[in-house]
Simulated scan of single mutants.
Amino acid sequence: MSDTTEEGETMTFKESPEAVAQVLQHALIGDDLPDSFTLLGREWSLHRGVFPSTLSAATEVMASIVPYPLGGSFLEVGCGTGVIAVTAALNGCATVTALDINEKAVANTVANAERHGVSDRVRVLHSDMYTELDPAERFDTIFWNVPWTYVEDGFALSTDLHSAVFDPGYQGQARYLAGAHAHLTDGGRLLLGTADLGDRERLDALAEETGLRVELLRRVRRIEEVRVMEYHMLELHRK
Rank of each mutant, 00 (worst) to 15 (best):
D3Y: 10
E15K: 07
V165D: 04
V122M: 05
V23G: 06
T141R: 01
D199E: 06
S53Q: 12
E152P: 00
T5Q: 14
F37H: 09
G30S: 14
P17E: 14
G172T: 15
N112F: 02
G172R: 09
T109R: 00
G71M: 01
D32V: 06
N112W: 04
A94I: 09
E235V: 05
C93I: 05
L192N: 15
K104V: 01
T159E: 13
A57W: 03
L161W: 14
W144F: 11
E137T: 10
L99R: 08
I65V: 13
P69T: 10
D31Y: 12
D186G: 14
T97Y: 01
L184A: 00
T95Y: 01
L157F: 13
E224Y: 02
V122Y: 08
S36L: 03
P17R: 08
F155Y: 14
E9H: 07
T141G: 01
E6P: 02
T59E: 05
L157H: 09
A207H: 12
D134M: 12
A105I: 08
F74K: 15
G78R: 04
T194Q: 09
A89D: 02
A156C: 10
T54W: 10
F139C: 15
E6S: 13
V226W: 04
D120S: 00
M11C: 13
G30C: 09
Q173M: 02
L28E: 14
T12G: 05
E43A: 10
T194K: 06
E230W: 12
F13P: 11
A174H: 04
G78T: 08
R238D: 14
Q171E: 10
K239A: 02
